[in-house]
Write a protein that binds this DNA or RNA. Structure first.
Lengths: 335, 335
DNA sequence: AAAACCAACGCAAACGTTTGCGGATAAAAC
DNA sequence: GTTTTATCCGCAAACGTTTGCGTTGGTTTT
């Protein structure tokens, strides 16, 4: 029953040639005769020879593997990102190792080390919320291992980035709410040390400014998960009495807020409008359906992988670039 | 800027000892003196030595990596499974390489080969819907590489399995619908060559039998995605006129059906009840909230990884086992 | 017929580890 | 003062590849 993997040496022994000949024959090296090539290739197929990627990686100092670190795979946005990465990478002969940080800094560091141990050729990273120190990423840069940040980036590390136009997306959706007549718009904000949270807040502020509506600091609440909505429910309900709209930094927080308000008798969007960010599938399924901003995870992943692979193949030698995907407003029933 | 990874030989050279001494010192081998051990370990830490997992894997014929093949990562169930796998595997020093088959047989085969090339120590698999031929899995078995199937299994391959009690779950939810007074229950069924689809259908049939309600073949529709719901919308709407409930093989299909009916004026659950399977987050967010069956992806993933790692460590030598997680009915507002 | 050449293949080192075995030094036993 | 024993360490092979260079034969030049 056990038939272990066959190696090049096995083939060489069976066919009475040298391992080097087998190696060359398998890649149609011109210095091997047509006959020998065919004979070896046929035999290799027969015994189902498969090259050992570990040995190959060791020899060539290149593992043809890229490491991905994301906060949480269960979020639709991130799983879309992964799909994009995989579709591109696998097409070019690269494998992908995925790690989750679970929004935990320490785990993120562990992940970097583990992937580094496996000699991944490059990194695709979405930084965890709790990460304040970026030394682990700087280390990689020093070693010449390329990183491309996706969606969540830090200015501390000089590298490529692929982002959504968070600022513009937030500005668009808040402008929309203002045009609808809303004047007291609550913002459920994300962490301000990450570009995502910061830019969306700034877009919110810009929209208000453009409309000549003063920014009220007390309407900005640091609250970016359903859990935090539950935690701050009293405060949020209190705020809501004087508000006519909510703009949340992501869709699940928006939906959680919507639920909370509905449970307390609010009619949405008549009494209070709600908007999110990301266009999660949840947005179309919730009632009323959620107004939000489209954020194309699949495309972001694919583009990030493309940039990384270009660097790895040495085609890109220029300075680091930041690719920003446009944000599109998705007006639905909630606001 | 470029400071390449340091190897054991580098340390040996710098410290004037042999590589073997360094190797042993790093793992506190008793034959190395306390002094040398400390000196080497300190230096290793200083230069940030990290073992090369490729070399290690090559030498020990063990990569400490497990391969995961799932249909689509964007489904909450599967991403939960992955989280469970990772949490267990990383804790025991194993890495995880994830591949998506996208429900495509050919891609599944490619994935098996790719992971096999990387000499993963074992496989965790949820079979793609379009897979009819299981030769690629049988090959692995022949080579003595352990597989644990999760959720979707095939009887053709002798291996460990971790499943939900699909039969019982379906029986429970259909019984519930019957108790509610429904008599003409449509079943949106999954593919019958996979245990999941088959068992859920059988549970549906069993519940009807127990209640003395005859099974009407024309009420069973092969339809297990929102896309298929859209595709079969006319037929479904036609069926619905004479039905009082729908039991769908999964939650997104249930929700899609619910939407379709609602768009055509149906009041749910008054005119027609709807139930799904899986307890996707979508179930709690949709209105009316969806009655469904809980299916613990995280636990399934964790258990599957546990079983696989036990086999890898040689602790398990017995026959293959099938672990079946109980199914719990989640009664909500839709039926 | 010696020199030069070419086609086809083998040798051996290298990638970074681990590990069995043997060797050196020094202390302990006789 | 020789032998034993223990302690500490180095040599070299091996894992599966790739690749520069060397080695065969045999064919073509002059």
């Amino acid at each position: 029953m056990k038939s272990p993997q066959v190696s090049i040496s096995d083939i060489a022994r069976d066919l009475g040639v040298a391992p080097s000949t087998v190696s060359r024959a398998l890649k149609n090296h011109p210095e091997i005769s047509r006959d020998t090539c065919l004979r070896i290739q046929e035999y290799a197929r027969k015994v189902n020879y498969r090259p050992n990627a570990l040995a190959l990686g060791l020899k060539q100092q290149k593992s043809f593997t890229i490491g991905v670190i994301i906060p949480e795979i269960v979020h639709h946005f991130f799983s879309s990102v992964i799909s994009g990465i995989e579709d591109l990478a696998y097409g070019k002969g690269y494998r992908v190792i995925i790690c989750q940080s679970n929004e935990d800094y320490h785990r993120e560091v562990i992940n970097v080390e583990a992937l580094s141990d496996h000699r991944v050729d490059g990194f695709l990273v979405s930084i965890s919320k709790s990460t304040r120190d970026n030394k682990h990423f700087l280390n990689l840069s020093e070693q010449g291992i390329p990183i491309v940040f996706m969606d969540r980036a830090t200015p501390e590390v000089d590298s490529d980035r692929v982002l959504t136009n968070d600022f513009e997306g937030a500005r668009l959706v808040v402008s929309h709410l203002l045009k609808r007549g809303c004047r007291n718009i609550i913002h459920l904000a994300g962490p301000q040390h990450l570009s995502v949270g910061r830019e969306r807040y700034l877009g919110y502020a810009e929209a208000l400014k453009e409309a000549g509506v003063p920014l009220q600091d007390e309407l900005v609440l640091k609250c970016d998960t359903p859990a935090r909505v539950a935690q701050h429910s009293a405060k949020l309900l209190n705020l809501a009495t004087g508000a006519d709209a909510i703009f949340a930094v992501n869709d699940f927080t928006a939906v959680a807020a919507m639920r909370l308000l509905q449970d307390h008798g609010y009619i949405i969007p008549d009494q209070i409008a709600v908007a999110g960010f990301g266009d999660d599938p949840i947005a179309t399924v919730v009632r009323p359906s959620l107004t939000t901003v489209e954020q194309r995870g699949y495309d972001i992943g694919k583009e990030a992988a493309r940039i990384l692979l270009n660097r790895l193949s040495g085609e890109t030698e220029e300075d680091f670039k930041t690719k920003i995907f446009p944000a599109f407003l998705k007006v639905r029933d909630s606001g």
